[in-house]
Amino acid sequence: MRVICKYPDLRYYQGYHDVAVTFLLVAGEEVAFAVMDVLSTNHFSECMQETMDATQKRLLFIWPVVNFENPELFNFLQHSGVGTMFALPWYLTWFGHSLNSYKAVVRLYDYFLASPVYSPLFVTAAIILYRADEVFLQDCDMASIHLLLSKLPENLPIEQLLNISSHLYDKYPMAMIKKEVERLEREDQERRKLDEKSALERRKKLARNAKSSSNYTLSHWIPQLLTPKSFIVTTAFSIFVGFCAYYYKSQYMSAGIS
């Protein structure tokens, strides 16, 4: 609370108190305040911004590590569309929110205090890699994988995972991971563009069918299409189609005349 008051730019998030209360219990108010001061302006500064966008972006850093170590697992997880939501509470609370064992929590906190800022991402990657066999047993869909990963097992071999995490950290420099994230994002964007294109074509087809069969269906499409995003897409698309039509018409006309 005192830290939040000291830095008006930093925003409290649900989970921040999990971190604060752990230090309060272990070290008392004064030391906890000093620790939270440093953590809030360094380790958690991204999480305390106005939006969670930076944090969500940061969480993507786990994927290259998983991909380098176990591409099959990476592909399976990507295909499921699980995203990084399961790991959000881990990252925001240094696992304090998600682990029941107080002993495990304070051990992790010790480790994170003595490690580089982004170490929690590597512990996350280590946990995902460690649970690969369990992941493969699930259906490849978002709900099943999210459900499995978001619940941390009671008997995680913490020491072993921390060793792996340190090892991963040394093996893959942050700059390299960043580059890889950018590459994956580009790939993802291209895939999404393709999806949108085919979706648009499907809609066009459907709209055409609807138009010829009945009017009421079309009238129901309109409110649905009027979300801001689709509005822009549709407008841009119709302008484009208009231009094309005009262009071809003039082409054919002139061809017809000559």
Binding site: Y13, Q14, M85, L88, L92, T93, A143, L147, S150
Partner: peptide, 24 residues
């Protein structure tokens, strides 16, 4: 009960008129 961070998820299967319905 602590505050939820992000999104939590539960599954429950219920029976309605003899049919099994899975609720996510």
């Amino acid at each position: 009960q602590g505050a939820t961070i992000g999104v939590d998820f539960m599954i429950k299967t219920v029976e309605v008129d003899g049919d099994k319905i899975k609720l996510q």
